[in-house]
Structure formats: C-alpha cells, structure tokens
Design a protein around this nucleic acid. Structure first.
Length: 961
RNA sequence: GCUCAAGUGGCGGAAUUGGUAGACGCGCUGGAUUCAAAAUCCAGUUCUUUCGGGAGUGUGGGUUCGAUUCCCACCUUGAGUACCA
C-alpha cells in the first residue's frame, strides 16, 4: 500500500467539512482559546506560497490547543472592501461585488486544499451589508460620544451637553479641537440649536472638520498618514499633496496616552511596540508663550500677538537667541514688518512650491527669512528676532519653536547660516563646532535663577517660574494625529449620514444598514465629487426612513433653510469609509455564531465568553495602521461598555516574508547566445529573469520547457544556449516574490505534486516563523521523503505493520524525547525545529524496526497539527473511528529519558579532544581519576602537569594547563 | 541620522540556564538496485593537513576553567522611522 497523498487529503478535507469537525462552540466546559489570522484581502491574483505561512503556523497552534483540551475558536474571513476591485471596476465596468465574489471563491478553494482547521461557519466579509451594518453602527456610537480626561474614558455626548448647560465649557477637561471658543452656561443656553451642534462637533469622537489632508490626485482620494510611504502613496507610489477638505476624522489623539500605556499589558514583540510608541510619539516638556514686541513698521494693524511654542528643554530657556515659525504659521502675515515683507513672501512662495517629498529629500539645505519682528524673552525681557524656516513643521506642536542654538543642532546650523548669535548656557562645554544636545552631564550657566542646576532641576524650576508669570506650563505633546476617515471611493462602507443645511445628521440605528447605491461608473464625477455623487438613488427620506431618489431633494429656496423648504428628504454623504473601518472590529464578529448575529455586533454572552484574541498572527506591515486603529476602537467600545476588554490581541506574532528565488539566464551583449552561469565571468552579459518552474534543484535549466512556454517561448526560439558540463546552469538571486520577477510559486502546484501535508511541513521547515526566508521548491523533497518514510513505518506491502508488541526501551525513549521537544517547540512557536524532531523520530523508529502501537499512535497525535491529513489516515488505519483532532496530547514521562551512563566530552583548555563513556553515578573524584589515567589524556598533556581539572558531573570535563 | 533585529558550511538553518559547533533537510560525491531512468537504500560531505593533528560561528578586544551564547568597540546586511523642537 502506497502513500497516495492526493486521495488521502481530499478524503479528510471532505470529512472535516461534512462533520464540522472544527466548529467552535460558545458553550463548553473546556477553557477557551482564540487563535486568529489577519484576514486576507481577496485579490485577483490568488495565493502564492508566501501567503499561507502565517495561516499554517496559527493552524498548528489551534490544532495543538485542541489536543491540549481547549475549546478553540479559529475563524477566517475576508477584508473584502478595497481598492483593487474598484480599480478593476473602473477599467472593466464590472461591479466590485462580482469581482470580489469570484476572488473569494478562488481563495476559498486554495485555502481548503491546504487543510486548515478553520471554523468557516463563522466567516465574515467586511463588504457584506449584514456586516457593515455594524461598522456603521459603531461609527454612530463614536459620533454620539466625547472623551473625558477626568475619568479617562469616552462618554455619551448627552453628558457633555449637560455639563455645558450647567457650567459652560470653561472647566471641561475633555478632548476637543484646538480652536474652541470659551462659553458660559448662560451663553450655551442662549445659542441656537445650529450653533450648539457646531460646537458639539468639535468634541465628538468622530467629527466633520475642514482639515489639511493628504490628497492623492492620481487615486482621486485622501490618504491617512500610515498610507503614505516616503511622501508617495503606499499603493501605486503616486505623489501626495496637502489640500484643505471637509472630512470625517476620528479623535484617536484622545486615546494617545492609553494606547501607549496599554502596550505594557500585551505580549507583542518589542519592535512592534516600539513602532507604535514612535507613532504615538509622546514628548514631555513645556509650552511657553512669548509676547511679540510692538513694531513701528508692522504691515498689519497693531495688536498684541503671542507665540506659543512647545519645548522639551525648558531648562535651556536662557539660551534662546531667536524664534522660528513654520512658513505656514498664521502669525507670519500679521507680524512681518513692511521692510521684510517682500523677502518673507518670496520665501513662503518658494517653500510652498516644494512638495513634501522634495522637502524630505533635501534636509541639508538651510533656508529661512527674517520677519523683522521681535518677541520678548519671558525672563530677561530682551528682544528675540523672529524668523521663519521650513525646518519647523506646521503640523507638529504649535508650528513654532524657541530656538536654542547651543542645545539643538538644527537651531545651531540655522544660527550659523544666518549669523545669529549662539550664547552658551552650558558650563565647560565647547560649542564652537556643534551644539551640545545631551541632557546628561551638564550644568546650566548664564541663566539667572537656573545657574548651577542640572537638566532635571532646571526644567522643574523653569516651568515653575513660567507658571508664575502666566507664560507657560508643563505639557505633554503627542505626534499622533487624528485619523482622517473619509475616502472618495466607491467600494467601501457608506456613512449612515445625511445633511440638513450642511450639518451632518445620523440615521437612526434601527434603519441600518445603509447599503451601497448602484452607480453607472466608478469614477469621481465631472464636478469632482466622489463616485457616490453618480448615484441616482442616494437621498434620505426622513419621513419614511429609507433611501430614495435624488430627484426628490428640493433645492433650498433663497431666504429659507433646508428644513423649511425640503420635504423631509435630504442628500446622503458621498464619501465612504477607509479600509481600516471594517478590520478594526471584525475579531468580535467571529465570536457570535451566524444564526445569532442579527441583534448586535455580537451578543454579550459571546463577547464575555471569548473576551479577546489570545493569539494573533499576521504581517508586520500593519504595525501602525490596523493594529493601532483596532486598539483604539476596542478601548472606545470598552468605555461605552459594549465590550469588556481593553485590548483586542493579547499575543501577536508577525510572520516573516517568504522571498522568491529568482532564476536568470545570461544573454551575451548584442547576440542571441545565452551563457551558462559558470561561463559569464569577464563577459558582457545581460541577466534575464526566467520562470522558476523551468529550473530544477541543481539550478539546471529545462531549455525545451522554456522554448515551449506559452508566454515567452518565442523569445528563445532562435536562441543558442552555451552549456557547461552538458547542462545550462541559471544564476539565482533572492528577491521579493513578485509576478514581474517570474519567481512566484503557486501552492496549487505544490499540493498537486507533493500534497498539502508536504507544503505545510516545508513552510514550517524553512526557518523561524518571524524571519524572512527564501523559498526554494527543490527542498520540499526532503519533507516529502519524510512523509513517505513515515507511511512506510506504519504500512508495508502487506498492509498495516503496527501491532500490540510491547515497546522497547529505545522506542519509548524516542517517543518521549519527541513529545518533550515538540511540546516545547509549539509553545515557543519554534515550528521549524519540531519538523527536524519528527524526522529524527521516524529515522530512529525505522532503525529500531518499531511496530508498537503504544508508541506509533501517540506519535501521530504529535504530528497531527503539522500534517493533519496523513495523521488522520494512519490514525484511522489503527482502528480509531473518531477524528484525531479529538485525541489528547501525549503526556511526557521523564523516566524514559533517564540514562545510566554519559559520553563525557573531555576538553583541554576548553577544546574538546575526545569523549569517554562513564557511568552517570560516578563521583567527581572518580571521574577525574579515570580521565587523568586515560592514555589519550596522557598523550594530550605531553608530560605537562595540569593546573586545574574542572569536572561537571553529567556535563563535561575540562583540563587546564 | 535615530531605533530595532540579524551576521554560523555550497544553500535553508540547529545548538532551550555559557559545557561535544554545524542537528535536520537541500545540494554535492561515491556505492547498491535497474537494460536504463525515476524512485528507493547505504556511505561520505566546515576548512585545512605531512592523516598525528591544527584552525574555525562578521572583525578586534574583554570576562570565564570553558563563549555562537555574556560585556565593550567596530564592520556589514535587513526592517522601521525621520527636520518631532
């Protein structure tokens, strides 16, 4: 009986599906364990061998946990809104829903053939209305909430309204826009309803505001900060410009501190936490207010101005010799003197022309302009010249800095360049070459009341003195900006929002979902509106609570409001939500069984039972996007008591990328001759990518196959291949797996030729999960050979070889050291080493001619998380009628590993020279005596007397001298 | 520039608290089997060597009886981030 993996795998995949073997229950006596993969975007290209790596790892862990007696939730779904389906729709006119459906079918088929233990009964798709109904619902909850810093949590907006009614906003310690006006309770109560709504919008956790956004003209949409890489769009690499637009934003900045603190409570890698910390960018310092001195020739009407700056070094306040404003700073126009106006305007124009990218590429060039205005030093009252310079960013802090050239290298360079004085306030420090930027080992001098203090003391004192003057206070600044939540796209969640007199109104939650309307084209409108501007049926009827035709919206008559002239029918929001909306809460949706999903995004029972994700596996590219937004939404949902957990993902592992091994042929310049890899030295050759499937394990090219290739065969029709040793050897290089490099390996072909179990084992065998590693199909023969060997251990030509023979000591020793190692490996996510362990076990048991069921049956359970199909098949051949997934994990018994003797390594000065078999119970003294008497020891010493002999019983002997 | 991770045979990689460096697999070499090939099996495979050995985990130091492992400096590669005041 042969190992027919294709039949076996198809059989068990069918069995698992039919018996719902991996369906999780929301009721169980067992402890729960939730294993989750980052769900895929179903792209048209399908899976390549790099994609399943994380899924295989999580599947092994999920199956292991089942063997260990846990009630495991291991679901899968699709992040099915997104740009590629929309781009395809623009090109072909095909509805993105159809494209998405087709792609999902392909994904599902490819995933199924790898034998994952997913509970598909809980599948979610972010693009299905029953799902995004709840994304819309969460959006409404955010709109109905504000953030209270006193209680450090989000609360319902009605509580804030109450505060305003009673106290106004003077003492409200809550998150809000920067530019809110102060009002008293009386004022609030006298405001019109409209005005009150405008004010509340400045406090809501999702709010509509005119903000400067990253606009990508090529994509026709705005992008979030994390969707921009090196100044260009992450998708497509298109230029991005700054533009003012009215957009929905999420007040994630209110959660900055909690997002930072929460990192200490979760088991993520340090590098990932570090990314999030950087992104949040907390800095502790002070805000300082400088008064602008009156000027005789200011270009504006004379009023008093103040400049607020943020500094992390209030201790250096006496080192300030100038101030610098960002060119975009609002005060620039107001304070610039008539003499300097031309220069300043020219500078502003020049900087405005430079794109974000140019500015980033060119950080060396120092540029700026003097405004002619002076600020007054808060303590010395000396005048300080005010400059503008593009090294100060409008978007960080207040867009203005107090420049301390002796303590900051950028200020130093700027001062040197423009010949501004550089006063030294550090005792005994040489600043003739560069600034002294360290906070350590420094004593402040030339600084009035700060003289003689160190950084810590001086900082405290400076803040105290500033507070006395009313010109500053201690302040914490975060880099984290509110997240823009509107996208000018079609294929995303519609907002449950309509507009009355331009003011946003939420649709009542009972009328959700608001489903995507049909459009005849997926492009922006000619007038620049988002694609939903093309929809004909996209207005909200507030009387009948349904979406109706736009024709029913009556244009507002002059002199009336919308409300007066409309028939209760208003235009709906034209933007859609960004990709991260649906992925910020999907892990809760899986907790609820499909049949019970109607009432809430998940029932309280389901949420309380599953709590949060115990193990989350996915790519590191989501370090600052998805993972930060999910944490934010979870904290919000917790504040509003919709969920009971603070963090969505307790443990997180980033799987490394699988790289492709590209193959090259070398064409000699100007000829049609291709040289084998060994012949190219000194020749002028052009390397050309060829498809990796025409290359064998020894890097030999299948020339006939290449010439007959449907796509590229013709290119090589008349080519002459110069061989070496009778074969053509290709050159190889490790690169990112990509279609254009012809190094993509498809899992379908691997499953067909070697089987899913081989694929699973090989992906794990390649190397540590978290590390990037190259794929080389040739190596798969190793694990495939192992499975054949395993099969032969159980099944011979005459059928099953396993019987009830008593296991030998060696059999048990092999089994138990394998149990120990595999268990440790899985707990440490070191899956590559357990594959080796299995190979060793099978090699040893084969050599031992083991046929004992008592050993061979538990071995199958150990292997089953890794290679579930062959394990199921052999397990059933042994007479079991239930799935192996119900078997419990074998118990390790250390007594089988006890040895009576030890093969001691005998070292001389730390170098092992020979080994010596000695009894385990031999004493230290006896060991030393025996070793010293040994002829090889005497030979090594060559008559010398050793200075010292180290004996560690059970470990090693080291002879020194 | 800053932060983090990593450097071990021809290749992927192993070595769990410092204790026999190179497990396991690929590739390669030789052999068995075969008309032949595939498949399978056996032996060998870090380098060097006068066959006794000797050297060896990016480089240079250090701690230790003993260092791939710990410490310091440097080099290289990869990832992230960047005029963050």
């Amino acid at each position: 009986m042969q190992y027919h993996f294709n039949d076996i795998e198809a059989k068990w995949q069918k069995y698992w599906a039919e018996n719902q073997t991996f369906k999780a229950s929301n009721n169980s006596d067992k402890p729960k364990y939730y294993v989750l993969d980052m769900f895929p975007y179903p792209s048209g290209a399908g899976l390549h061998v790099g994609h399943p790596l994380g899924y295989i790892a999580s599947d092994i862990y999920a199956r292991y946990k089942r063997h260990k007696g846990f009630n495991v939730l291991h679901p899968q779904g699709y992040d099915s809104f997104g740009l590629p389906a929309e781009q395809y729709a623009i090109q072909t006119g095909q509805h993105p829903a159809i494209t998405t459906e087709t792609n999902i079918k392909t994904y599902r088929r490819q995933l199924d053939q790898i034998g994952f233990s997913f509970d598909w009964s809980r599948e979610v798709r972010t693009s299905s209305p029953e799902y995004y109904k709840w994304t819309q619902w969460i959006f409404i909850q955010l709109f109905e909430s504000y953030y209270c810093f006193n209680d450090n949590k989000a609360k319902h907006i009605k509580e804030l309204i109450y505060v305003f009614k009673v106290n106004g906003n003077k003492d409200a310690n809550v998150a809000c826009d920067d530019n809110v006006e102060e009002f008293t309770a009386e004022e609030w109560n006298s405001f019109s309803e409209d005005k009150q709504q405008d004010i509340l919008l400045q406090y809501r956790l999702t709010y509509l505001a005119e903000t400067e956004v990253n606009w990508c003209p090529a994509l026709g949409t705005v992008l979030a900060n994390d969707e921009i890489v090196n100044g260009v769009s992450e998708r497509g690499g298109h230029p991005v410009i700054r533009k003012k637009m009215t957009q929905w934003s999420m007040r994630i900045s209110a959660y900055a501190e909690r997002l930072l603190q929460g990192l200490d409570t979760i088991d993520w890698t340090d590098s990932l936490k570090e990314s999030q910390r950087n992104w949040i960018g907390k800095s502790v310092g002070a805000s300082v207010t400088f008064n602008v001195m009156p000027s005789v020739s200011s270009s504006a009407v004379e009023t008093s101005h103040q400049i607020e700056v943020f500094t992390t070094r209030p201790d250096t306040i006496f080192g300030v010799s100038f101030m610098t404003l960002a060119p975009e700073h609002e005060l620039v126009q107001k304070i610039t003197t008539l003499e300097q106006k031309a220069e300043v305007d020219a500078y502003i124009e020049a900087t405005a022309k430079r794109s974000e990218r140019d500015r980033m590429a060119d950080v060396k060039t120092i540029s700026g302009a003097f405004t002619g205005a002076y600020a007054e030093h808060p303590f010395s009252k000396e005048p300080i010249p005010i400059w503008i310079g593009d090294y100060v960013l409008a978007g960080y802090g207040t867009g203005a800095v107090m420049s301390v050239p002796c303590g900051d290298q950028r200020d130093y360079d700027f001062a040197k360049h423009f010949n501004i004085p550089i006063p030294n306030i550090f005792e005994g420090v040489d600043i003739s070459e560069e600034a002294y930027t360290s906070k350590d080992n420094v004593t402040i001098t030339n600084s009035d009341f700060l003289n003689g203090m160190n950084y810590k003391k001086a900082t405290k004192r400076a803040i105290f003195e500033l507070e006395q003057l009313g010109q500053g206070q201690g302040k914490i600044n975060y880099r984290l900006r509110d997240a823009v939540f509107s996208r000018q796209r079609y294929w995303g969640e519609p907002f449950p929002v309509y507009y009355v007199d331009g003011k946003p109104q939420m649709i009542d939650v009972q009328h959700l979902p608001i489903t995507l309307p049909e459009v005849e084209k997926y492009l922006p409108t000619e007038t620049g509106e988002p694609p939903l501007g093309r929809a004909d049926i996209w207005a909200w009827d507030t009387k009948n609570n349904k979406v109706v035709s736009n024709d029913l919206v009556i244009p507002t008559e002059v002199g009336t409001t919308d409300e007066e002239s409309h028939n209760g029918i208003y235009p709906l929001e034209l933007n859609t939500m960004p990709g991260w909306a649906g992925s910020s809460w999907y892990f809760f949706r899986y907790m609820e069984e499909k049949a019970n999903r109607g009432e809430a995004f998940a029932s309280q029972d389901a949420l309380n039972y599953w709590e949060n994700v115990d193990l989350y596996i996915g790519g590191s590219e989501h370090a600052t996007g998805h993972l930060l937004y999910s944490r934010f939404w979870v904290k919000f949902l917790k504040d509003r008591e919709f969920v009971s957990v603070d963090e969505p993902f307790k443990k997180l592992i980033n799987q490394g990328m699988i790289l492709g091994t590209s193959a090259f042929v070398y064409r000699e310049e100007g000829t049609n001759t291709y040289l084998s890899q060994g012949l190219i030295e000194g020749k002028n050759v052009l390397p050309i990518h060829v498809k990796v499937q025409y290359v064998n394990a020894s890097d030999e090219l299948d020339i006939e196959g290449l010439k007959n290739d449907d796509e590229f065969g013709e290119d090589f029709n008349n080519a002459e291949f110069i061989l070496e040793d009778g074969v053509y050897k290709v050159g190889r290089e490790v690169e990112k797996m990509s279609k254009s490099k012809y190094n993509v390996v498809n899992p379908d072909a691997i499953c067909e030729q070697y089987g899913a179990d081989s694929l699973r084992l090989y992906e794990m065998f390649l190397g540590p999960l978290e590390q990037a590693k190259p794929w080389n199909t040739a190596g798969i023969t190793g694990v495939h050979g192992f499975l054949k060997k395993l099969w032969k251990l159980y099944v011979g030509d005459e059928g099953l070889k396993v019987n009830d023979t008593k296991p030998t000591k060696d059999n048990l020793k092999t089994l138990h050291k394998t149990i120990k190692k595999v268990e440790e490996d899985i707990e440490n996510f070191s899956f590559n080493t357990s594959v080796s362990t299995f190979m060793i076990a099978v090699n040893e048991l084969t050599a031992q001619k083991c046929t004992s069921k008592e050993v061979l049956e538990p071995l199958l359970v150990l292997l089953s998380p890794y290679a579930p199909h062959i394990a199921e098949e052999l397990y059933s051949l042994l007479g079991n009628t239930e799935s192996i997934s119900t078997a419990s994990f074998p118990k390790f018994d250390a007594s089988h590993l006890v040895e009576s003797s030890k093969n001691y390594p005998i070292s001389f000065n730390g170098k092992m020279r020979f080994t010596l078999e000695l009894p385990m119970d031999m004493s230290k003294e006896e060991i030393e005596k025996t070793v010293m008497a040994h002829e090889k020891t005497i030979a090594q010493l060559e008559g010398r007397t050793p200075k010292k002999v180290i004996v560690v019983p059970g470990k090693i002997v080291n002879i020194v001298g």
